[in-house]
Design a protein around this nucleic acid. Structure first.
Lengths: 227, 227
DNA sequence: AATGGTATGTTGGTATACCATATGGTCACA
DNA sequence: TGTGACCATATGGTATACCAACATACCATT
């Protein structure tokens, strides 16, 4: 709250380059399933679709390649990275480690401001769930975790989790949509929120692990069914 | 050993693109301290130094940017990412989680082949230590962990750890060099190796955590001393 | 039908041109 | 002397054109 005073009257220079836009668009297109796994990404086609030049497209692809969303085959060019259960399982395991740790730290540190933001995120999440709005639910879930990670000071872990999430984004969208079978989604989140608001670190970590184990189980069934 | 028969007379198509080479060179230059943290990376200068065109340099920079080694400021261009203790601490924490989990899994799964490779890696590590060869020590340590992660099937976690390691590479080189104060380096590794070879998962995880706590402590002192 | 050549498409690599912006300096003027 | 206008330079961002290598599909010859 003290250094904001410094940056307060700073001009919001936001020169969002074309490249950043292209990265976002492409990432979103992959995440949303617009491009399916294994699909080739032909540079010049993307130039037309995005309305930018090859330089921009190529640099965007390099970025997404380093993110793990795109893999470039030797002489065949870039394609959307494929996802099998062996890899997805690893992603869920790593998320479990990082998110449990973050929730634990958050529970130890949470003050009233954090708790308020967490409750707010939970409310929009529940609203999105009752409205059956997948996109809002997706973003609300992300926001919920963002509060946990950033208030715990785990910036880098949050970067990693976001990257992992975009890799399994299709699965994530599916699991979020499949939660009609159980009331798991918001119920799990509510338990996480409750544990953090009670400053109960072990309970928070446990609640996160339960939620992720559940999500991973749903993901496994989805993945093994479709192959 | 059986599929090598298939690929034996296969031409070793190594289409290492200029871009990959550029990425490796730049990464190595940053890791080795050739470019220090905060230093600007002027594109056209890099073109001359690397002997490639701007396209290649720019794409390489995008890759390293996504890796977290380079950050691009709004209208000032790319620069080598800086590292403070707040971020380094997070990196050590995350490494602790991932490496402990990997060592644990490795200890559960390790068969004779894994144990042999682990011992081999440990021997070259110890040799590099007695020879006081920092570069070999660095690579041997990396190799040691690579055996642990890959034999545990934690490919993705290994990717993440490697990325984190390149971020703190300067620190890592320093901590590896500073271990004359204690005999910690290879001694810790030996204990990790021993626990895994005894298939003692909890001991392996604990040994990893001890080693990392030690490394983090050295890193903290180094970082706070130089600022 | 098998073989060998050919055409096309895609990519990697490069060079170059143009524009916008930031920076720093110079110079005229108050 | 200080101030503001102005310009030159450096740099990043973007677009475009070109070429070579390679893979794939297709076609012709035997």
């Amino acid at each position: 709250m003290d250094q904001t005073h410094d940056t307060d009257l700073r001009i919001d220079h936001s020169p969002t380059t074309l490249r950043e836009l292209a990265v976002d668009r492409l990432r979103q297109a992959i995440i949303s399933g617009r491009f399916s796994g294994g699909e080739r990404l032909v540079e010049r086609t993307l130039c037309d679709q995005l309305g930018v030049s090859r330089s921009v497209v190529r640099e965007a692809i390099r970025y997404l390649e380093a993110e793990g969303l795109v893999e470039t085959l030797a002489r065949s060019g870039p394609m959307v990275a494929k996802l099998d259960w062996a890899r997805a399982r690893q992603v869920y395991d790593i998320r479990g480690l990082l998110e449990a740790e973050a929730a634990s730290a958050c529970a130890r540190l949470a003050d009233d401001g954090v708790k308020a933001r967490l409750h707010a995120a939970l409310r929009t999440l529940e609203a999105a769930f009752t409205d059956a709005d997948p996109s809002r639910l997706y973003h609300a879930t992300t926001k919920f975790y963002e509060v946990i990670f950033t208030s715990a000071g785990h910036d880098i872990a949050w970067e990693i989790v976001q990257r992992l999430n975009s890799r399994i984004s299709r699965l994530r969208a599916l699991t979020l949509a499949t939660t009609d079978r159980r009331v798991s989604g918001p119920a799990h989140m509510a338990r996480i929120c409750e544990a953090i608001c009670n400053n109960d670190a072990p309970a928070a970590a446990k609640a996160v692990r339960v939620h992720l184990a559940d999500a991973a189980e749903i993901a496994r069934m989805l993945l093994e069914k479709e192959t």
